[in-house]
């Protein structure tokens, strides 16, 4: 459940008319969006869309040609030091100091973030516990698996207890188990009140995880807002999934004869009892369900079908190679 905000809430990230080009190539063109505190915000776009450039601008590693970026009200141009104290940035690669142990690595960054000696042990213990790396604290990083290294990287991001986590493709290259575990950690962090800005290509997981999403394509924002708003958009004719216990042979004709059903069809790769129904716009689905029950066929499930994130993504982004 995402928290509610009033108009006075300062956004965790506020990007306004961000524009940047590299040697004549327009990477970002008037990009504007906002991320509210304590939410998990997905940042999605095809390769070369400008995701990493935007992330670098937010985490003070890029001076944009135009526009304003602020983090919890601190401008990245005017007050980069304060911004850095508030963010934890995890880049899209697994590069770490391989000759250090896990503890030394975290202690190094704790020192770089200015934590005093007394605080460090406690903080490192906490982040190692959170990322379930307690037992590997004295292992060399070079000896860890990719999934483990990613956890250490996440622990590093958390070492100074930032309010905002900027994660660039955190799940890339991880096996399914490591990916699921990472998502669990991210959920736990959101529950702790962190704001998480996550750039990812794995749309199904983002759809489950994120409260809000921004879709960027060719340097321009195509959508920014709550996930529900994206998935329910253009849903004038509601679609439902119906699963019948013992479907008769003429089930499709029967279903189409029900009042309020526009079309009924069996999905191409679905099981024999599954049907997709498209209802008339504005029709009460409860009344349709009553009519279906009236057919006397056992109904196992009846649920509204929402647009998938990847479908929304495909609808919003342009096909083809960027020139």
């Amino acid at each position: 459940m995402s928290p509610t905000y009033d108009s006075s809430t300062v956004p965790a990230i506020s990007v306004s008319e961000l524009t940047h080009s590299f040697k004549g190539h327009q990477a970002l063109n008037q990009v504007s969006f906002a991320v509210m505190p304590q939410t998990l915000h997905g940042f999605v776009g095809p390769n070369g869309a400008g995701k990493t450039t935007t992330l670098k601008a937010i985490c003070t590693l890029l001076k944009p040609n135009w526009g304003e970026v602020s983090v919890f009200g601190h401008s990245v141009r005017a007050d980069p030091i304060s911004v850095r104290e508030k963010i934890g940035f995890m880049p899209d690669h697994f590069s770490m100091y391989r000759q250090m142990t896990v503890f030394e690595y975290l202690d190094f960054f704790a020192a770089a973030y200015g934590l005093n000696l007394g605080q460090r042990d406690k903080v490192i213990d906490d982040v190692l516990t959170l990322t379930d790396m307690d037992g590997r604290r004295n292992d060399l990083i070079s000896g860890l698996s990719r999934g483990m290294q990613q956890r250490v990287s996440l622990a590093r991001v958390l070492v100074h207890d930032p309010d905002l986590l900027l994660l660039d493709e955190p799940a890339s290259g991880l096996d399914p188990r490591a990916r699921i575990e990472l998502m669990e950690i991210l959920r736990a962090l959101r529950a702790m009140g962190k704001t998480i800005f996550i750039s990812s290509h794995i749309l199904t997981e983002l759809a489950e995880l994120c409260d809000s999403v921004t879709i960027i394509d060719r340097g321009q924002i195509k959508f920014s807002g709550p996930m529900d708003a994206l998935l329910d958009a253009d849903d004038e004719t509601p679609r439902f999934s119906l699963r019948l216990g013992q479907p008769p042979e003429n089930a499709v004709e029967l279903l189409q004869s029900v009042d309020g059903v526009v079309t009924a069809e069996q999905p191409e790769y679905g099981s024999p009892g599954e049907f997709d129904l498209e209802l008339e716009a504005g029709r009460d689905s409860n009344l349709v369900l009553q009519s279906l029950i009236g057919l006397g066929i056992p109904i196992l499930s009846f649920s509204q079908r929402r647009k998938q994130l990847n479908q929304a993504f495909m609808d919003l982004t342009t096909r083809g190679v960027r020139t």
């Binding site: 509210m36 939410t39 809000s212």
Partner: peptide, 9 residues
């Protein structure tokens, strides 16, 4: 800056 309550597309 767009706010989250209403989506911008």
């Amino acid at each position: 800056v767009p706010v989250l309550e209403g989506a911008t597309q």
